[in-house]
Design a protein around this nucleic acid. Structure first.
Lengths: 145, 145
DNA sequence: CAAGATTGATAGATCAATCTTA
DNA sequence: TAAGATTGATCTATCAATCTTG
């Protein structure tokens, strides 16, 4: 609202965009996948049976269905994931990691931890990490309105 | 690095993405332009003579040259900005607001302040705003490494 | 009809290659 | 040669429309 507030938000958006761009480049370089690919692979790996319904994946990432669908199409073409039918619901589809996806996820996780530790987490104090949590919580509250 | 840290960062990225998506939709709906358009128009309006060299625009926004060039091409086609030659440097180009760009900027600024105030700034305490500044500064420091 | 998912069109972002002038 | 800028190819994101099954 105030010029100060507007500027503070803009600065935060700018620096987070820079960090994301750097993470993206490093993942691409070290593991051959994008940050979006990495998030999808991670969400699958975290799921109970290492497989997940597509609408649940969308909910987990906060993505629209059509974005998920296009993304999975590209990832399946590159042999990162596989689709399989859902017996319980004829409309549904499961996705799981393909062999190449598992390998890419392993490499990407190492690269991600490296770059995020180097450029972000390693440079924040414990107090700043707490502030980050607090700020995130406040924003989630505010955005839910 | 720690699972806690990774999760905290992921949560922040997720909520900021949600806020940006909301801002984008509102700008599109209320002013007919995207957030990227808005940032460009704003940077021009803030410049000394309300005109700016293209490489300076890129520096101001933290964008690569080719992204700026494509963006300006689209914006010029929609009559939001105009290009003009630079007398002092034959390689250079100035851009300025077109009449339609000025109108869009006015509407967009009001919409932006509304949505950002409603979903972010209005819901943060003064202490949280200070923490936001502090965090941004720490990230800028870290990212500069 | 609603939910799960896909598709096609369009807009936006990224990369490498190119062109012109300093 | 390097700086300023553009272009074309490719990849991603968003929107509206569609298709199928519950």
């Amino acid at each position: 609202m105030t010029e100060t507030g507007r500027g503070a938000w803009r600065d935060l958006m700018r620096v987070t965009a820079e960090v994301n761009a750097r993470v993206n480049r490093e993942l691409q370089r070290q593991a051959g996948i994008s940050l979006a690919d990495f998030e999808v692979l991670n969400a699958i790996a975290r799921a109970p049976e290492r497989q997940i319904r597509i609408f649940e994946l969308g909910a987990a990432l906060g993505w629209e269905q059509s974005r998920v669908s296009h993304q999975l199409g590209r990832m399946q073409r590159r042999e990162l994931v596989v689709r399989s039918e859902c017996a319980a619901d004829g409309r549904g589809t499961f996705i799981a990691l393909a062999a190449h996806g598992r390998r890419a996820l392993r490499r990407a996780t190492a690269a991600y931890d490296r770059v995020l530790g180097d450029t972000v987490l390693g440079n924040l104090t414990a107090a700043q990490l707490d502030a980050l949590d607090d700020l995130t919580a406040a924003l989630q509250m505010a955005a839910a309105t």
